[in-house]
Computed example of a mutant assay.
Amino acid sequence: MKVINPEKLKSANEHYIVAEHTTPVHKYVDALTFKLASSLDNRSCKVSGYSVSQLWYAVLDFGTNYCNLHNLIEGSGLDKVSGYSESTNNSKCTQYSSANCTIY
Rank of each mutant, 00 (worst) to 15 (best):
V59T: 02
L72T: 03
I73C: 05
A99R: 04
V47A: 08
K35R: 14
D61Y: 01
S39P: 11
S48M: 15
C67T: 01
A99N: 02
D41E: 05
C93M: 14
S38Q: 15
S39W: 06
T64L: 12
C101V: 07
N100C: 08
C93Y: 09
S98C: 14
A58M: 01
V81G: 04
K92T: 15
Q54K: 14
Y96F: 08
N90Q: 04
A58C: 02
G49D: 07
N100V: 12
S38K: 15
H70Q: 07
A58N: 09
V29P: 09
S44N: 04
S53Y: 03
K80H: 06
L32H: 08
S38D: 14
G63D: 02
S48E: 13
D79N: 14
N68C: 04
N90E: 07
N89R: 01
H70G: 01
D41L: 09
V59F: 03
H70N: 08
Y50K: 13
G77W: 07
D79V: 06
Q95N: 11
G77R: 11
S48Q: 15
Y84P: 00
S85D: 01
G49N: 07
Y84R: 00
S76P: 11
A58H: 03
L69H: 00
Y28G: 08
G77D: 06
S51V: 01
V52T: 11
S82Y: 10
V52L: 12
K46H: 00
Q54I: 05
S97A: 07
S53R: 02
L40E: 05
V29D: 03
C45H: 02
S97D: 04
L69V: 07
L72N: 04
Y50A: 13
L36K: 14
L32A: 11
K46C: 03
L72D: 02
S82F: 09
D79W: 09
S85A: 02
A58D: 08
L40F: 07
V47K: 08
D79F: 10
Y57S: 11
S85N: 07
A99Q: 06
S97T: 05
L55H: 11
S38Y: 14
S53K: 01
G75N: 03
G63Y: 04
N68I: 02
W56Y: 04
F62D: 11
Y84E: 00
E74N: 12
D61T: 00
Y66H: 09
Y96E: 02
G63E: 09
T88H: 00
S87N: 06
K27Y: 08
V59D: 05
Q95Y: 10
S91E: 12
S39N: 06
S76G: 05
Y57H: 05
N71W: 03
N100F: 13
D61A: 02
E86F: 00
T88E: 02
N89A: 01
Y66M: 06
S85V: 04
Y50I: 11
C45M: 05
V59E: 00
Y96K: 03
T33G: 15
T94D: 13
G83N: 00
T94C: 12
Y96N: 01
T64N: 12
D79E: 12
T94S: 13
V81F: 10
D30A: 05
K80P: 06
N68S: 01
G75I: 00
Y57G: 07
R43F: 15
A31L: 15
C45I: 07
K80L: 09
N71P: 04
Q95G: 10
N90T: 04
T94F: 06
S98H: 14
S76Q: 10
V59S: 03
G49K: 04
G49E: 08
W56D: 09
Y84D: 00
Q95R: 06
A31D: 15
